[in-house]
């Protein structure tokens, strides 16, 4: 029954032609009409209800927590993370919190989520040293911070990036950003990707800061949140220059980032090199 419902959702998604309609490929996103969306939403509700729970308590679920900060605009794409969480739940075995939370830099709150998402579309008030110290500890202990500038109309993404660069210099003194090229495990933690993609046409790579033996801070310049954002009525909030294909790739990038935060360099292990190829005999 569940399988049938999922097939029906996929069929509905594949049959509909949205505003970003392009030639259908295997990377086609879930472009639906409002009626199709509501139907899919209902079906998904049924599916999720019947799905076996994995995490026992809500804090054991994966919450992509948005960072609140003073000054600037900490949430330029309010619906982006909710949609990413939905896609994560739909596509992967991750038990995601479907209404992601937000928090200021408070030790008790950060303790509940080892994954932080920071966005903005204008400059912001520099973080104080005590706040930076908490963030530093968070990263050292295993937390991951994803930074995603938003290119909103009327916003100042460059102002955000300037503030963010200043923050990172203070947060990780003596370290500079390292290029995360397409051979990094982030680009194959779930999907195989050849470049970073979002609403904004940034560089093909991401940038990162290493803490210990892992990339703890991942910085993009692609406005991935802009590609993920979708309003409550099922309309995409921003048109993608590259159409549905570009949006799908942006979701895949988002899924890979979360998978990297959860599995680290798992995909670099020897068995994955030995057995790469056939994905149909299991899902590892």
């Amino acid at each position: 029954m569940i399988v049938k419902i999922w097939k029906w959702i996929n069929k509905a998604e594949m049959d509909c032609k949205g505003r970003d309609s392009v030639k259908k490929t295997s990377e086609q996103p879930a472009e639906v009409t409002r009626r199709g969306f509501l139907g899919a939403l209902l079906a998904t509700g049924v599916l999720l209800h019947g799905r076996r729970l994995i995490a026992i308590g809500s804090s054991s679920q994966v919450d992509i927590t948005q960072l609140i900060y003073s000054g600037g605009n900490w949430q330029p794409r309010p619906t982006a993370l909710r949609r990413l969480a939905f896609e994560l739940q739909k596509r992967t075995a991750v038990d995601a919190v479907l209404e992601p939370t937000s928090t200021r830099v408070l030790p008790g709150r950060l303790a509940a989520s080892p994954l932080l998402y920071m966005s903005g579309d204008r400059s912001f008030t520099p973080l104080t040293e005590p706040v930076l110290e908490v963030l530093r500890r968070y990263l050292r202990l295993g937390g991951t911070l994803i930074i995603d500038p938003a290119y909103t109309s009327g916003g100042d993404a460059n102002g955000f990036k300037k503030s963010m660069t200043g923050m990172l210099h203070k947060l990780l003194p003596g370290q500079s950003a390292e290029k995360i090229a397409s051979d990094h495990v982030i680009f194959r933690s779930f999907y195989k990707l050849d470049r970073a993609v979002g609403l904004h046409d940034g560089a093909p790579w991401l940038e990162g800061y290493t803490v210990g033996d892992r990339t703890a801070v991942i910085v993009g310049d692609h406005d991935m949140g802009g590609a993920w954002a979708r309003d409550n009525l099922g309309n995409w909030e921003n048109e993608m220059p590259g159409g549905a294909r570009q949006r799908e790739r942006a979701f895949r990038m988002g899924v890979n980032l979360v998978m990297y935060a959860l599995c680290g360099d798992y995909k670099n292990e020897m068995p994955h090199k030995r057995f790469s190829g056939d994905a149909n005999k299991g899902a590892r």
Binding site: W6, S26, R51, Y191, K267, P271, H272, A279
Partner: peptide
């Protein structure tokens, strides 16, 4: 290590194209 990154339902309902998953 081997981690199941997709549920069996997702394996049958989602496209496999572009995945970096391997057989177990």
């Amino acid at each position: 290590s081997f981690y199941l990154l997709r549920t069996p339902y997702q394996s049958t309902t989602q496209s496999n194209a572009g995945l970096s998953l391997i057989p177990f």
